[in-house]
Design a protein around this nucleic acid. Sequence first.
DNA 1: AACATTCGCAACCGCCTGGGT
DNA 2: GACCCAGGCGGTTGCGAATGT
Length: 265
Amino acid sequence: MRCKPLERPKLKHKKGFWSPDEDEKLRDYIMNYGHGCWSAVPLNAGLERNGKSCRLRWNNYLRPGLKRGAFTMQEKETVLTLHGLLGNKWSVISQHLSGRTDNEIKNYWHSYLKKQVAKSDNLEAQNTNTGNTELLSSSYVNSVTRNLSFDSSDSGNCPYTDTNQQVPRAQTNKLPKILFADWLSLKEFHVYQGLACKDGFSNGKNYQDTPVHGLLSNEASTESSETVNCGSNYPNEDMFRTQMNIDQLFNSNGEYFNIDDFLYM
DNA sequence: AACATTCGCAACCGCCTGGGT
DNA sequence: GACCCAGGCGGTTGCGAATGT
């Protein structure tokens, strides 16, 4: 992990925007030799930048496979839902959106989604004031889960549409984790958010302290058809167990499930 | 047309983590 | 165990472009 200490001359590092020439140098160097130790990259590539700056430039701009341009509807939903679950864990969220960088997602959130969420919260506050208390806080998560939808005509988006399909373990790890979030009912989101919820689950504790057994019960499955995505049917527990790596869902005692283990597996 | 405000985004900053010494 | 340092991450800033007045 750690590189050999470098004997480096005390260079004054350049800051600010990268020139095309600098981009070219960095790209050429990394394509030919890999980045290895980032702090050595600027020296070897002939750049007057620091290693951090090179890493950032490469990861956020030069790296092959980066997607540019507007976020798709599905990407937007993914960001919203994962943000609802994870908070500002941009790097984790970015792992679920191929071609998008954490920085890009963060910018997207701050410049666009945050406002949408605020709007949604305002609407809900109005509903609450008018006596409609059915929806509790964490409104945007609710609205997201309500609105989550995959194009049912595009089964490629949804590995759950075929309940008989066994997913090999190696592939299981590549499943979009977003689908678990989609699968949770509104109630579970309330628990995660540590907000008051009608079944008395929430006490401000971390979500991972909450046994997930109940969350996988039929009760959850029938919670609300409004939260359904991936076609028309809520996946049942058996299907969930089949599609997911069950070892990751229950600990060695076979009882509890740590959402972090799931999300980061 | 001129100025003000908002938006979008690249890049920097500072903190944290983990591995080597 | 303490220290050092590279790498990683999230928050923030700054600037050009777009839009509004």
